[in-house]
């Protein structure tokens, strides 16, 4: 796609650096922080954060098939 001239890097700013720093920290924490199964106990703020994130990532309740009798294969 080089002839289209769409590769035009921009000057770096604080948002770019914050973004790459956040990605790096996320990667390092995944590697080095103990998982819930490994840790003896997790602090309350972490448990609350986990539940909040889990709830935020769920599908809309009406789109979950809880009763298979509504989901006939015909």
């Amino acid at each position: 796609m080089a002839p289209m001239g769409l590769m035009q890097p921009q000057p770096l700013n604080g948002f770019h650096l914050a973004g790459i720093l956040a990605l790096t920290l996320a990667w390092l924490s995944r590697l080095f922080l103990p998982t819930a199964a490994q840790a003896a106990s997790s602090p309350d703020w972490m448990l609350k954060g986990y539940v909040t994130a889990l709830n935020a990532s769920q599908p809309h309740p009406d789109t979950i098939t809880t009763h298979r009798n509504h989901y006939q294969y015909q």
Binding site: P9, P11, L12, H16, I20, L23, T24
Partner: peptide, 18 residues
């Protein structure tokens, strides 16, 4: 580089390390 290419290179570094 001193521009936004550095961010992409940084992500390539993280990806290749992983």
């Amino acid at each position: 580089s001193g521009d936004t290419t550095l961010v992409l290179i940084g992500v390539a570094f993280l990806t290749a390390s992983q």
